[in-house]
Simulated scan of single mutants.
Amino acid sequence: MLLEGRVAIVTGAGRGIGRAHALELARHGAAVVVNDFGVTLAGESAGETPAESVVAEIEALGGRAVANGADVADFEQAAAMVQQAIDTFGGLDILVNNAGFVRDRMLVNTSEEEWDAVIRVHLKGHFAPLRHAGAYWRAEAKEGRQRAARVINTSSGAGLQGSIGQATYSAAKGGIAALTLVAAAEMGRYGVTVNAIAPVAKTRMTEGAFDTSAMALPEDNSPIVAWLASEEAGDVTGRVIEIDGSTITVESGWRHDASHDLGRRWTAPEVGPALRDLLAASVVPEGVYGA
């Protein structure tokens, strides 16, 4: 019961990984706002309410939960979702940003509408809930009620190493990793840790895009989320952690590598030899998935 008495929001929690997170947090004692907009894999209206089903599962386990149908990339709806947690359960301690969908295309075939839709739900859909939750935690800290708040964002190997045919998705997930670093640095003073996971799982998002026969199950990712959401994890922040079945990997992102200070402005002919020497002395990046 790592999370007894704590209050969580999980976005995109009607199916797949988000559903597994919501159930795991509830098993550890958290009251959960189960958010799901009820859309198809491509982000279109499905006329379903999967969040209600997850709430019923949590209540059957003896837990506390409430459904939320907000579009997390809508700034005002995201604010109302945070307020729902506070009004229903008396506060907010945990935000798990998970909602998203894919519209995979090779870069030269990607439409403007597809780009905008994927960037909106993933990147703005992380920013809006985080922004409103962060404002609440800042206000609590200023009033002397600092909470041991936790944010777990959802990046991807596609955002960290890149993935052929997923330029839009990769750009969004890479942005989420960078957002995680900045939020961790800015919000630590209010008692907030901000981390991200890069989950690997057989879900409706991966089926059709990859061979999923050997992939982990959605629930294999959730124990890590539950621990990161606990008060025990207060010394871990600004990190991206990949989970692939039984393997946890700490991801190391962009960092300064080999450098050469010429002491004056470079000339163009000097750049080539110097840069080639630096690249030869630098860590070789991992290959893009599918390359």
Rank of each mutant, 00 (worst) to 15 (best):
A209D: 00
F210E: 00
T212I: 02
A214P: 00
A214H: 07
M215V: 07
M215S: 02
L217A: 08
L217K: 06
P218V: 06
P218N: 06
D220E: 09
D220P: 00
D220S: 03
D220K: 00
N221E: 08
N221Q: 03
S222A: 07
P223N: 06
P223D: 02
V225W: 01
V225E: 04
A226S: 08
W227V: 04
W227N: 07
L228N: 05
L228W: 01
L228K: 09
S230D: 04
S230N: 06
E231V: 06
E231R: 04
E231I: 07
E231Q: 05
A233T: 11
A233F: 03
G234L: 03
D235W: 11
D235A: 14
D235H: 13
D235V: 05
V236E: 04
T237I: 10
T237Q: 04
G238D: 08
G238S: 12
V240H: 00
I241H: 00
I241K: 01
E242F: 02
I243E: 00
I243M: 04
I243L: 09
I243T: 05
D244P: 03
D244W: 00
G245C: 10
T247W: 11
T247Q: 11
I248E: 14
T249K: 13
V250L: 15
E251R: 04
S252G: 15
W254T: 15
R255C: 14
R255S: 13
R255N: 15
H256C: 12
D257Q: 11
D257I: 04
D257R: 08
A258D: 10
A258V: 14
H260G: 11
D261F: 13
D261E: 15
L262R: 12
R265N: 15
T267W: 14
A268N: 12
P269M: 08
P269I: 13
E270S: 09
E270F: 07
V271G: 04
V271W: 15
G272V: 10
A274Y: 13
L275N: 13
L279M: 12
L279C: 08
A280L: 10
A281Y: 13
A281L: 09
A281D: 14
S282P: 10
S282G: 09
V283Q: 12
V283P: 09
V284G: 09
V284E: 14
E286K: 07
E286N: 10
E286T: 08
